[in-house]
Computed example of a mutant assay.
Amino acid sequence: MLIDAEGRLVALGLVNGHCNVPPTDDKPKVCKPAPQTVLSIFQPAGAKQADAEPLVVWGRTLPAFLAAMADSDDPARAADAQKIASVEYITGQPDVPGWRVEQVPPGFPASLHPLLVQTAEVNSTASAGKIVLPKGLAGQPMRTAYQRSQRNEPRLPDAEVTLRSYAGLGALVDTYRELAKGASPEEEGREVAFNGTDGAGRYSIRLRDAQETGVFITVASWKRK
């Protein structure tokens, strides 16, 4: 990470092999060979590539064991040493939503889509009592026995979406004061909850501050019966 004198993030560098996720779990991922390693630099919108030059210098400075390999008297060993073959610059897109409509589970009312803040990403979804996302857990019960014991839910939600946001908890509470008109925040243990109703039925919004890993936002819907 490249931080300026005021503690703000200027750019983030990632040394990687441009690995491709295999289509099935039984196949290994495919990455570029070590001599073709890529330095990916992530910058905020409007930043200049020159601002990240210290990261390029850092990326091209090999750790001691790789430097020794690159300086080996064995040509084959030296040729196999990891090195930065190319640098790519990736600019942030703050106006692009962090989630897609196709990630919303069946049964989640369109009227509640505005409660899914655009800057957050989908962490998990559930519908009809079963997990939908992540795919690795699809079909599992949406609540464990322990989770059910910790929540006052006479009936499971018909559908819910859990987002992860890196905005501060206070800022998100203010956001939901505006989005969830008429619903007041209530502290429930380590969570802040909003409960309200709309044309589709009843809904709840629960904000859980997980500190370094972000704030988890669960929007749940109970349809009118």
Rank of each mutant, 00 (worst) to 15 (best):
A138S: 12
R8E: 14
P22S: 06
R148W: 02
E102A: 15
Q118D: 12
S40P: 05
G92P: 01
L9F: 04
V38E: 13
A50Q: 13
P22I: 08
R206T: 07
A50T: 09
A47S: 12
L172P: 03
G107V: 00
V122Q: 08
A76M: 13
Q150N: 03
P28F: 07
R151G: 05
D209P: 00
Q150M: 09
T144Y: 03
L179T: 01
L179Y: 02
L55R: 01
P105V: 09
N123C: 09
Q150S: 12
D80F: 00
D158E: 01
A50M: 01
S127K: 00
Q140H: 06
G7W: 04
D74N: 15
W58A: 15
G182K: 11
F216Y: 14
L66P: 06
G129R: 02
F216D: 07
D25L: 12
R151K: 14
V21E: 13
E102V: 11
A76K: 15
I84K: 05
S111T: 07
Y203H: 08
P109T: 09
R190E: 13
R155F: 07
Y203D: 12
F42Q: 01
Y203M: 12
A159R: 00
Q150K: 11
E186G: 02
V104S: 07
I131L: 10
A180Q: 00
A193I: 14
L66R: 11
E186L: 00
R164E: 10
T175A: 11
V161W: 06
H113D: 09
Y146K: 14
K32T: 09
Q49N: 13
R155V: 14
G189Q: 04
P54D: 10
V96L: 15
Q150T: 14
N152R: 07
I84G: 04
P63L: 10
K27V: 13
V132E: 06
K32M: 10
M142N: 08
P106E: 12
A64I: 12
A210Y: 08
A79I: 02
W99R: 05
T218I: 01
A180H: 01
G201K: 04
V30T: 13
V56F: 09
I84D: 03
R224F: 07
A11S: 11
S165A: 14
L156A: 15
F194A: 05
A68W: 00
S40G: 13
K29D: 05
V117D: 04
V173Q: 06
L116S: 04
R190Y: 09
F42D: 03
D26K: 07
A85P: 05
S40C: 04
V161R: 04
S184T: 11
F216I: 05
D26L: 10
V215H: 08
V57L: 09
L9Q: 11
T144A: 09
A70H: 01
R206P: 03
G168P: 00
V21F: 09
I90L: 15
N20L: 15
D51Y: 03
G139T: 04
A34Q: 04
Q140L: 07
P154E: 11
R190S: 13
G196I: 08
L169M: 13
V101T: 12
W99V: 14
A68K: 15
G92I: 00
N195Y: 06
E53R: 10
G182D: 12
E191P: 01
A210P: 01
I41C: 08
S149Q: 13
D25P: 02
L112Y: 03
S40V: 07
